[in-house]
Design a binder for these strands. Structure first.
Lengths: 161, 161
DNA sequence: GAAGATTGAAAAGTCAATCTTC
DNA sequence: GAAGATTGACTTTTCAATCTTC
């Protein structure tokens, strides 16, 4: 079987789980993007950035840390902060360009996330938690934790570029 | 607490599972893209398209079905098939433009997927299956199956545009 | 000189409009 | 006229280069 894209390195059970997972990592982001874009005009990543800031006591976070918390590259974050800045939701908070910049959620930004959250959460509930048992929720936490750790491990968790 | 982005609609256990899942759906595609791009110069979506064709007896599939199998929109697929065509790996196989076009893997395309697969599979194994128990693999299949069904349900499973 | 950040160009994805055939 | 497919314009992401401060 040299025609087989998945030789004997992955067994049948794993193969089925893999097809499920690869669909989920494709479809779920798309579904969440869709709801957020349609109802609030923001992307999932933009929402995560603003939500992360909201969770800080002073609604402020250094870009490096914000990038890490949102699982994005510094470059991507910088572009997004610029866009969110144009919309008046986030402000760069450290005068001199160069080392160490803070991003802070504005009042309008805070308002925007708070307005946006319920619809997003409802969608997460509908697509994920409504269809899972309590045990499955527990298993999901453990499984994703392990995968995320494996990803963060060797490549050093830091995403350059 | 109106400062809280996640009010009482999601409990603490769900919240933890959610943070895990949202990281996974962000980090895992990025990690897989990275390996594929670095070692083989193809994207995850391109690989999935070619792998789907390889799994067909005649290495051929109608675009509509190929889009569905790879969880992509027809528009995205069409662009990708054009790119893969330029690289000589896939050929559009239905003369007249308009209704019903087939995509077929070329010999070089077949060779490319077969060469690319082992490295990709090794990465999937390393990041996913090596860190999960047999029970977790089973749970993962069930969980992703349910989520994918929930996504496919109401919005009609079909992705227009 | 390296960590943190920014920037611009290139590549990919999305969305809406269009086109063809059934 | 609608399903299947394509296309182009626009947006977002990525990648590499650059810049500043410690």
């Amino acid at each position: 079987m040299d025609d087989d894209a998945f030789p004997r390195s992955i067994d049948e059970r794993e193969r089925r789980a893999w097809f499920g997972l690869v669909s989920t990592i494709t479809l779920l982001p798309a579904a969440l993007e869709s709801q957020l874009q349609r109802e609030s005009g923001v992307s999932l990543y933009e929402f995560r950035v603003m939500a992360a800031l909201l969770m800080q006591p002073d609604h402020t976070l250094q870009l490096k840390d914000l990038a890490s918390v949102t699982d994005g590259s510094l470059s991507r974050l910088s572009h997004v902060v610029t866009r969110l800045g144009r919309r008046g939701w986030v402000r760069r908070y450290s005068e001199r360009t160069g080392r160490a910049t803070q991003a802070r959620l504005t009042d309008r930004g805070r308002q925007k996330v708070v307005e946006t959250a319920p619809g997003h959460i409802a969608e997460v509930r509908r697509l994920v938690f409504d269809v899972l048992s309590a045990e499955q929720v527990g298993a999901l936490e453990e499984i994703t934790g392990r995968i995320n750790t494996a990803i963060g491990a060797q490549s050093g968790s830091s995403r350059t570029s």
